[in-house]
């Protein structure tokens, strides 16, 4: 039997990957993909905990997370397309209208 800590370590490493992607990549699409990676890391913990606590709630949470991820990706990508039309770039360094 694999202890649940192993899943926790795996999940946190994947989460860190996603976080690094959000922080260091300058491409908006890459940032969105890194967010998916982070959500996915959380899902691993949910399922592992659900198995080990003998509660199915964790798996249901994963289904909701997937729903939210789908909505987030769709709206996010729509915004990326709108931004690209307007400014011709999806690089976050050039999209700094709110920075004054």
């Amino acid at each position: 039997m694999i202890p649940v800590e192993n899943y926790f370590v795996l999940s946190s490493l994947v989460f860190l990957c996603g976080l690094a992607g959000v922080m260091f990549r300058r491409n908006l699409i890459m940032v969105l993909m890194s967010i998916e990676l982070m959500l996915n890391a959380v899902n691993i913990i949910f399922v592992a905990a659900s198995r080990h606590l003998a509660q199915v709630d964790g798996q249901i949470m994963v289904l909701f997370v997937i729903t939210v991820a789908a909505c987030e990706a769709a709206v996010g990508l729509a915004m990326v397309i709108a931004l690209f039309r307007r400014y011709g770039t999806v690089n976050t360094e050039f999209l700094r209208l709110l920075r004054g």
């Binding site: 039997m1 946190s12 659900s50 080990h52």
Partner: peptide, 17 residues
């Protein structure tokens, strides 16, 4: 993680799932 490993001794046993 270390807190989890310390306070949850029973997690390695498979549950009812």
């Amino acid at each position: 993680g270390s807190e989890l490993a310390r306070t949850a001794p029973d997690l390695t046993t498979p549950g009812n799932l």
